[in-house]
């Protein structure tokens, strides 16, 4: 156990047997310490920011850049999935002079634009990990080396499988969600950016910076065609992730002990049963 003080929060106690993983580890700054400013009770809030339901406790989890990134991402992924599907299964343009129309060209342009926005946003979000609040790095750093964390993952998994009656409360993602986010969103997203840029670099040419930076991906799995196939499969991984993600958010919003959907809009996480 670390000796660093942990601030008791209003209604949010550590259990008597608070496991090791809850202790602050190596993150810089105040990360790891549940700082009072992050765990303000409702009473600390200005009136106009006070969430509905006075007995709840609210914590400011997702700061503005993270929320913005979330919604930019959501938009990009929708656009990318649709245009990506169309690139693989293109609609037929009207016959006639080829130079007069650019249906495939436009679909690809939109795809490339959205892809580069997604890539830059992912990069920015990664950088924000070092500047944002203490929850900003959670997405990228699941503590997979901690056994206790895996126990928590298992516990949450059991809750989703109706084997446990009540979930635990978490300010950020619960460990199960964090694992899912990392495995089915962060990693696929990184793969999609790398493979997408590699496929794009075939067009910019072998003497382009894109090819210098990402060209190695083209032959990593054999040949560019295989990478293209994997890129397409990756799209489906993200589509399925999105379905699960939306459902999980609704599910949590309705049946867990903290807010979800409103949180990614406002940044504030509500804990419904704190008053008890």
């Amino acid at each position: 156990m670390s000796t660093l003080p942990r601030a008791p929060a209003d209604g949010l106690h550590e259990s008597a047997s608070a496991p090791d993983f809850l202790t602050p580890a190596t993150a810089p700054g105040s990360a790891g310490v549940v700082a009072p400013k992050d765990l303000r009770g409702v009473a600390d809030l200005p009136t106009d920011e006070r969430p509905v339901g006075a007995k709840q406790t609210a914590i400011y989890v997702y700061d503005m850049p993270v929320r913005a990134w979330h919604w930019v991402n959501a938009l990009c992924i929708v656009v990318l999935a649709i245009t990506g599907y169309l690139i693989a299964n293109p609609p037929a343009a009207a016959p006639g002079e080829a130079f007069e129309r650019s249906l495939m060209g436009n679909i690809r342009l939109i795809h490339f634009t959205a892809g580069q926005i997604l890539a830059i946003a992912l990069l920015a979000r990664f950088v924000w990990m070092f500047f944002g609040n203490r929850y900003a790095h959670q997405l990228f750093c699941p503590p997979i080396w901690r056994r206790q964390w895996w126990a928590e993952v298992w516990f949450e998994a059991k809750w989703y499988a109706f084997l446990v009656r009540d979930p635990k409360k978490y300010i950020g993602h619960n460990p199960f969600a964090a694992l899912m986010m990392f495995a089915f969103f962060v990693l696929p997203c990184v793969f999609m950016v790398l493979s997408g840029m590699a496929l794009y670099s075939m067009g910019t040419g072998v003497d382009s910076w894109q090819h210098a930076a990402f060209g190695w991906m083209l032959t990593l799995f054999g040949n560019p065609m295989t990478l293209q196939t994997l890129h397409h499969l990756g799209m489906w991984v993200l589509v399925i992730f999105s379905i699960l993600h939306i459902y999980a958010a609704i599910h949590e919003e309705m049946w867990s002990r903290q807010s979800m959907i409103s949180t990614i809009v406002s940044g504030w996480r509500m804990f419904r049963d704190n008053a008890r």
């Binding site: 008597a16 809850l22 580890a25 959670q138 009540d166 635990k168 978490y170 950020g172």
Partner: peptide
């Protein structure tokens, strides 16, 4: 009735 057992885990990020 969950107070005793499951309430206490604080956050999912154990940095």
């Amino acid at each position: 009735g969950a107070e005793d057992k499951n309430l206490a885990s604080l956050d999912g990020e154990p940095k």
